[in-house]
């Protein structure tokens, strides 16, 4: 797919996100909008996957783990748009008896999800386990993960980081959503993380950077990272994003981390996002 085609999918996904959170007056639009371009690129261009025949084991397929589970709206939309389940199921998000739980869950068998997330800091560990299993199975596929930048404050992330480098887990490509924001304010205000790149490098990872809103750059960075798998090091992509990207009044602030737009704000947001694949 071309970058233009990918951007059209992304525009639809952003529409889905704001409509989903508006409908239940809850959920997390900020991080979801910021990670849209990346997740669309990953699922529509990079990953070797078979949505029609999804199963938990995903043998000989690439796997993705969302560690910052609160951005479930973007993941659900991308999964639906990619054909894992019907797009009209997006209308059930966060409603009672839904498979689209507030945070991703496996209980109801939603296609595309392999472990629950929402309690932060656990996804990389699970991904490393899956990566070790791929190696044991002689499966050359790649494991992708996504993490929030605030999430990196959890100690478990660094336990996993150490394990991955020490054990040469080189079938993992992780990405951090470097939007500089968390709930109580900016990372600088809450708990400054210093030099993220230097931290991951010191932990033995092969670190690259990319602009999370430049489709060409996302494509080239991911393609290069894929080609470099198997070189004895885990790969970390520090992805600069703007929280709330695509909806001007949500952009660049922690304020839209976890609140939904009202009717007027929804109309304003939808006016800024082209409907490309048809609303659910």
């Amino acid at each position: 797919m071309t970058s233009l085609e990918l951007s059209k999918v992304a525009s639809q996904v952003r529409r889905d996100i704001v409509r989903m959170v508006h409908a239940v007056n809850s959920g997390h639009p900020g991080g979801s909008l910021g990670c849209t371009d990346f997740l669309v690129n990953l699922y529509f261009k990079q990953m070797n996957i078979n949505p029609a025949e999804w199963d938990m084991d995903g043998k000989n397929e690439d796997l993705f783990f969302l560690s910052n589970g609160h951005i479930s709206p973007v993941w659900y939309s991308v999964l639906a748009r990619k054909g894992y389940f019907q797009v009209n199921e997006l209308a059930t998000f966060r409603k009672i008896n839904t498979r689209l739980q507030g945070h991703p869950a496996t209980e109801e068998g939603l296609e595309g999800i392999r472990v629950a997330s929402g309690s932060l800091g656990q996804g990389l560990s699970v991904a490393l386990g899956a990566a070790e299993t791929k190696k044991l199975n002689g499966d050359k596929s790649i494991i992708y993960t996504l993490h929030g930048d605030g999430e990196l404050q959890e100690g478990q992330v660094w336990e996993a980081a150490m394990y991955a480098a020490a054990n040469k887990i080189d079938n993992v490509i992780s990405t951090v959503d470097y939007n500089g924001q968390q709930i109580d304010g900016s990372l600088e205000q809450v708990l400054a993380m210093g030099d993220l790149r230097a931290k991951w490098e010191a932990f033995g990872w092969d670190v690259r950077e990319m602009d999370g809103h430049n489709m060409d750059e996302i494509s080239s960075t991911l393609e290069k990272a894929k080609a470099d798998c198997g070189n004895g090091k885990p790969i970390m992509l520090i992805m600069t994003t703007s929280m709330g990207k695509g909806v001007d009044f949500m952009e660049g602030t922690h304020k839209w981390h976890g609140i939904a737009p009202n009717d007027e704000q929804l109309a304003d947001a939808l006016g800024q996002l082209e409907e490309t694949l048809g609303d659910y």
């Binding site: 239940v24 809850s26 966060r94 739980q101 507030g102 945070h103 629950a116 997330s117 929402g118 309690s119």
Partner: peptide, 8 residues
């Protein structure tokens, strides 16, 4: 806690 679901 409501809509956030079982993880929380």
């Amino acid at each position: 806690l409501g809509e956030d679901g079982a993880t929380h």
